[in-house]
Design a protein around this nucleic acid. Structure first.
Lengths: 194, 194, 194, 194
DNA sequence: TATGAATGAGTCTTCATTCAT
DNA sequence: CATGAATGAAGACTCATTCAT
């Protein structure tokens, strides 16, 4: 009953975060008045400040709670996949892309990039995400081509490039109107290293 | 007198743009009050609105006047270089990177990325830059490997990836703390296509 | 159980008043949110309003319960002292000063003066204190110099002046940084009347 | 014309200070919204913040500009008076009281005392005033009774007591309802030293 | 052109107080 | 009694923009 109740009637705090996520991703943090967040959440303005003393705390909580790096044992999964399809570097990267360790909605990703250079805590989170993706891409590539072909520097550039494409693909599409396909980049990289 | 007058006028307008460039790139467009622009430019607040009726006009003028795509005949230069070093795809891309068609200062690049998703005119300009870079990268790669090795899709992915790395390299470095080397990426791509 | 209950209840109420005394004397009534009183008292916010329906009731209760005019028979004490040291007007005033009929802590005195002009009930209490001190000073001086030397007006000025010095000595010291010694003033007054 | 103009039509800044003086002295600084100051001054709310960036700056400016210690040569005046009426210590103090070196209106004095313990700059100004009054009282008394009768400590207590009475007389009257007459205190002190 | 005072809508934030549990 | 979420009115302060001179 209690559980069902909480499911049916989201808590005020959750509704506030939902509203903020939508509005921040739409118009940006600065352009979103707290009043509009409260309005969309269906709570009085004061309640927002009951849960989040300052406006920035809404953003911080959003980033803290909704951009989690996945917690499953990533390495084990990658190893299993590598064993199942040996030598398939492109496939390994593509699978990594699909498991992008952003628990976040596309909205949250937009928020992450948009606010990163203004707000330290957001930037830190973005930095950690990038490092994590690079680490996993490097690991996947090493597994896929055990012979160590290609030098270390090239593999490093490949991992960093792939991470950049993954992180920025939506931003690139939105800002430049040009769609970039992670699978095509994965194939390109695999060819470069293979 | 007339000349002096026009000199003064230009000076004021230029100083306003200089100040705006510095402040926008530092704190962002929204966070920069017009009063501070005027103050830093050393002009009275009213004069700013004499030259730029609305605040957004300062940003628009900045983007229009200070992020010019280079006007030299890019294709001709690339052709000459390709002839001088046939088959050197990596070098072609590296040279392209060094001629990045942003006349803009690093400050202007920061402004471009930061404000692109909020302000249409900035986004348009960024889209045109991206398209231009992709076009030149494609052209350079085609020239470097005339045999048409590699299929078209892969070449397209290569051009788009390189453009993304070029455009975002500073953003990536600033936001994630991870430095990405365009030359290494150029070498990677050349290897993929070669 | 009942006893324990009443002990707890009293404890909560007392802790609220303790916290309010500390905070009001520190930052002033207006600058002290009820939330901080409750926090310092270690009680939930709602409980504070259970005991004190309005914020001002906390101040009123504080003044009512913690700035009591002493209840011993002041006149009798003064008479006994006067008999023991006849003619010692300065000593009589000094002893009066030491028995200052403020049961209150220095904190409560600060509250009294600070809030007097804003809150009627506090002002009334302060007025009563002043009147009481003047009365006692007059009585002590009359006893100490029974000959009736000095005219009535001068004695009145002496009593009022001494009361002012007693009441405001801490305020003067705190606000102006100048320390004023009640004993020296007592000696001065005694000399004026003697 | 310009002068007449400025006389007829007070500047907005002056009207703001006038309004603040009236309202601060009435209800206190904290209880006075900036909106009401602007309203009483007949200026838009924003203009108040054009002249005084923070609310506290209104109070600071008020204290800085409207509680000036008089600039005439006080010592010379006192000396002349002392020569004209030798031995008249009571008269000297009474004359000093009438020249109370507060250029300020009674309203400003109320503000000074009320806000002194909350705002440093106000407290500093009050401390300087007190020191100045004590200095002048001491000087006046020394001139009036050149024989050096009475010891130094008593003279010091007399000066401090008189300063306290002068500074706090209005506060005492307002808070306790008891009127204290500076002339009577002057006579008392003169008698004590005489 | 040049100047800075004037304007007022809008924003974040605080806080006493209520109320359902 | 106890709890802390809920409420909304009110306050300080910001800032783009206008305007008279």
């Amino acid at each position: 009953m209690v559980i069902v109740g909480s499911v049916y009637r989201q808590t005020a705090r959750t509704r506030i975060l939902d509203a903020a996520e939508e509005l921040f991703s739409g118009g940006g943090y600065d352009a979103t008045p707290t009043a509009r967040i409260a309005e969309l959440a269906g709570v009085p303005k004061g309640l927002l400040f009951h849960y989040f003393p300052r406006k920035i705390d809404v953003l911080i909580s959003l980033v803290d709670e909704r951009t989690l790096v996945t917690e499953y044992d990533a390495e084990e999964v990658v190893e299993r996949e590598a064993a199942a399809a040996p030598g398939d570097a492109a496939g390994a990267l593509s699978r990594l892309a699909r498991r992008l360790p952003l628990h976040a909605s596309p909205a949250m990703r937009r928020i992450l990039f948009r606010e990163a250079d203004t707000h330290l805590s957001v930037r830190e989170r973005l930095g950690r995400l990038n490092a994590e993706i690079i680490k996993r891409a490097r690991f996947a590539l090493e597994l896929a081509m055990p012979g160590g072909r290609g030098d270390a520097a090239r593999l490093e550039a490949a991992a960093a490039t792939f991470a950049a494409v993954l992180l920025y693909q939506e931003s690139i599409c939105q800002l430049t109107g040009h769609h970039i396909d992670p699978d095509a980049v994965a194939e390109l990289i695999a060819h470069a290293l293979g």
